[in-house]
Design a protein around this nucleic acid. Structure first.
Lengths: 117, 117
DNA sequence: CAGTTCCATCGACACTTGTCAATTGATACG
DNA sequence: CGTATCAATTGACAAGTGTCGATGGAACTG
């Protein structure tokens, strides 16, 4: 499970004395941190990160049947990874007859990308 | 477990006919994808992402006793998250007497940050 | 020395993840 | 119609994750 992020106001140490200097606060809001962590989590697997790389570089839509042979995992495993990327909103897919085409939602990566720079 | 990323050369479909147009290849190398996925995974939790935010904004070194009260989790849970960040190489720590100070290794975020932009 | 404080580690727990083989569902083709 | 193909889903399993309370170890305080 992903951790619950509930920021609380700064408290003193139990003995009432601050152990060290100035108070630090996060600049990111709770909701923002959760959105970005969700995206980062989805990128946190080499296969999924490479999938995103392929889809981004290709610009257009890519057929799943093109993606499967790029990796040494079963078709069902790759389908599972694509679902994770879909669930995170990073990619979308489209069926055309027998084939499924995937493409990146670049906007979904922007917030994390901006925070990281 | 993180998936094994072993790219294989493009194969034809079983019936010998490609199902769709042109071959796509990842631009990221296997090792690079694994490095970046490791970083992304470490950022894939709201608490850890916020910790990085705090440490980055603060520039200097931050005492753990400053970090604990910012989150609604136990001290041991926070320590666990800090360890994950240490294991990923994103942060380092330093003991000074009773206190432990954490700081960001900005270089470790660069590769992912660059790839993402 | 004895007590306290900070932080890391341990043990336990429920939940999630990555993986596969097998199945299913939809579509195309002969 | 029956068969073949692509991709998603299901069920299973070992491994990993996030969480806590309790314990441990180091170092300061009196």
């Amino acid at each position: 499970m992903s951790s619950e992020l509930t920021l609380t106001p700064k408290q003193k140490s139990p003995n009432g004395q601050p152990c060290c200097e100035p108070v630090v606060y996060p600049d990111v809001e709770r909701a923002q941190a959760e959105r970005m962590a969700k995206i980062a989590k989805a990128l946190g697997d080499p296969i999924r990160l490479t999938l995103i790389d392929v889809l981004r570089k290709h610009a257009g839509k890519v057929c799943v049947c093109e993606l499967v042979p790029l990796f040494d995992v079963s078709q069902s495993t790759l389908s599972h990874h694509l679902k994770k990327l879909r669930d995170a909103g990073i990619v979308d897919s489209e069926r055309q007859g027998l084939w499924a085409y995937y493409y990146v939602n670049p906007e979904e990566l922007e917030e994390l990308s901006a925070w990281l720079s």
